[in-house]
Each structure stands twice: as C-alpha cells, then as structure tokens.
C-alpha cells in the first residue's frame, strides 16, 4: 500500500457521507404531495423486506439451516417475542441444525 490509501479512505468517506446527507439537505420542508407521502410511507416496509430477503436464506452454511432459522424467527416474531430473544433463538436453531442434523 502507498500513501494514497489514506486519500482513498477519505474519498470513500466523503462519498458515503454525502449520500447519507443529501436527502436531509433536499427535504427541508414538510412534504404536502400525497403520492410522495404514500411512496415514502412504504419505504420502511420495503427496505426491511429487502434487508431480510434474500440474506436470511443465504446467511448460513446450508439452505436447510437457513429455513430452520427463518421459520423459528417467523413464529417467534409473530408471537410478539422481543428482538433479542428472537435473534438468539434463531441463531441457536441454525447452530443446532448445522451441528447435529447436517
């Protein structure tokens, strides 16, 4: 590596930060347009869905342990269990499935 690595890091940091800041610079007033509001209303649903899928099915060593973890998380989440409990038990089910059943 040469001295340019630090500059490289700074450029990456600058670009990353600008992307995070631009919406806050552009959206300085309350949004009145109903369709824009509707669009923004569903952004969290969609972003949470795309951050869950497909990574939940590809985060383990095998697709079967991924399904085991996914079904465990789905049932526990539907029953209203806490974030931490669901995450730990889902990870545990993946571990048990991979360690004992595969």
């Amino acid at each position: 590596m040469n001295g340019n690595t630090y500059l490289y890091i700074l450029v990456m940091a600058g670009v990353t930060y600008l992307i995070r800041l631009i919406p806050l610079i552009l959206m300085r007033k309350e949004i009145k347009n109903v369709y824009v509001k509707s669009f923004l209303y569903y952004v969290p649903y969609v972003t949470l869905a795309v951050m869950t899928f497909p990574s939940i099915l590809g985060a383990t060593a095998s697709i079967w342990s991924a399904w085991a973890g996914f079904i465990t998380a789905l049932i526990l989440a539907y029953r209203g269990n806490s974030l931490f409990k669901v995450s730990i038990l889902a990870c545990l089910s993946v571990f048990v499935f991979e360690f004992f059943l595969l």
């Binding site: 869905a49 899928f53 990574s55 973890g69 789905l74 669901v86």
Partner: peptide, 18 residues
Amino acid sequence: GLDFAMPATFLVLLIPLL
C-alpha cells in the same frame, strides 16, 4: 452463525408493521 442475527432482527422489526 451470528450473522444470521441481523436478517432475523429485520424480520422481527417487520412483522408487527404488517
């Protein structure tokens, strides 16, 4: 197997919104 915690957490955040 800990990286599974992240999508599992996203799923828990999502379910009550539906």
